[in-house]
Design a protein around this nucleic acid. Structure first.
Lengths: 141, 141
DNA sequence: GTCCCTGCAAACGGTTTGCACCCGG
DNA sequence: CCGGGTGCAAACCGTTTGCAGGGAC
């Protein structure tokens, strides 16, 4: 159906199995932040197909293959994204909420100078602060 | 001894206790990446003073107060830094190693445009790629 | 046919929490 | 004196792993 996904798997040196295919397809279809558990639940909604362990193992493999990005959400469950729509993040230091920030490039000059000869595949900016909700609720008065 | 640390605590709305003071002092003295467990071990090396739970609770409080930054190191134990020497990071997608990247500013233009009216307190860039060690050891041949 | 992958459940490890005691203000 | 902080240990929860059976190639 979607030969490109198969090729992605192959390119990553991963055998094509129904489980891996569906995890990858889920993430590419819904390029949102999803926890391993959400993915597991979503895939098994219709009928049991993928075990929790396999979801974790698959996500690890896909991440290593560079097909998926893992965002370790400060103590909470890790979030996974298909590597499709790059974006930055805003994290609330108080409640831990994670918001997406639209993508913008960092000037090559600063970037190259700082990373040197490292093999950089991608990058993202994480902003820290207090989100709107927390600002409102914690006003001292 | 160091009145400024006391003031930091106070400013964050935190009572001044020996435990909190020593955690904060440790992090400001050694502005490196340290896990909660390393901090706990280091502080209790001479004589037991801080329990593990208190280290965790204190780090949570300090983080909320903005005195300390938490880096959730992809699945592994979280790393903590005193908010003193800002720097960026390079994460190896393969082995998870975390390297420091010297600081550089992001042009205000891009930044403001992207974050809008959010209360941004700080930001950092995380580069992803394959570190030198992994590049060497995984060459296909 | 050979590995690698999967499922299950148990183990793991970092972090949080309940509760009683203690101390800072 | 009061409310919050601390210590201990148990609970928690996301993630990993060992092992036996099954599927990809």
């Amino acid at each position: 159906m979607k030969p490109d996904l198969d090729e992605c798997l192959r390119a990553g040196g991963l055998r094509r199995t129904a489980q891996r295919y569906s995890v990858l397809e889920y993430l590419t279809r819904r390029p949102i932040h999803a926890t391993a558990d959400e993915i597991h639940a979503a895939l098994n909604r219709r009928f049991p197909l993928v075990s929790r362990a396999t979801v974790y193992n698959t996500l690890r493999d896909l991440t290593r293959a560079g097909l998926v990005r893992e965002l370790s959400s400060e103590g909470k469950a890790a979030l996974f994204d298909a590597v499709i729509h790059p974006h930055h993040h805003f994290v609330c230091d108080q409640c831990g909420a994670l918001e997406d920030i639209e993508w913008f490039d960092i000037p090559d000059r600063s970037r190259k100078a700082a990373t040197g000869d490292r093999a950089v595949r991608s990058y993202e900016v994480t902003f820290h602060g207090i989100c709107g909700r927390c600002t409102k609720s914690s006003t001292t008065h």
